[in-house]
Design a binder for these strands. Structure first.
Length: 133
DNA sequence: ATGGTGACTGTAC
DNA sequence: CGTACAGCCACCA
């Protein structure tokens, strides 16, 4: 044997199932699906928990792929400022409405108390939520 | 291969 | 508080 060596994939045209981007995307979706109602997560947080700290933009790009056709609580994903960043894709008002429907209070500027509403999976103790009061 | 863009973030002014 | 700049990683032309 030694003739047909699979060698390395000539070109990674599309992210393979084992490809880092694919795993990253799967973890993002999994985390989003675990966000409880009335809670939120940030893009940077998702990227961090997905194993790609600093890839907050990619986290957002993954969400972009959900647009319509997803049952995940995508609306619970906001930016580090505590505000929705979907106004660029035309879902800003829709997301804010969904958040308010869950009891999340948005400031006049559309900002919420991220420090109190940000949710972290029990498994990851990266940043244990401090006692509210 | 190169360059530009983006549902981001943190620091600086 | 807001705006501006740089760093960051992956997708697309």
């Amino acid at each position: 044997m030694g003739s047909a060596a699979p060698a390395a994939p000539a070109s990674r045209a599309v992210a393979a199932p084992d490809s880092p981007p694919a795993a990253f995307r799967s973890r993002i979706l999994e985390l989003v699906g675990r966000i409880p109602s009335g809670r939120v997560m940030t893009y940077g947080q998702l990227a961090l928990l997905a194993g790609n700290p600093g890839a907050a933009r990619q986290a957002g790009f993954v969400m972009n792929g959900l647009m319509g056709g997803t049952e995940l609580p995508w609306h619970r994903v906001i930016n580090a400022q505590g505000r929705v960043s979907t106004h660029k894709v035309g879902f800003g008002d829709m997301q804010e409405g969904l958040l308010r429907a869950e009891g999340i209070v948005l400031d006049a500027s559309g900002r919420c108390d991220l420090k109190a509403l940000q949710w972290w999976p029990d498994e990851s103790r990266e940043a244990p939520p401090e006692p509210l009061f």
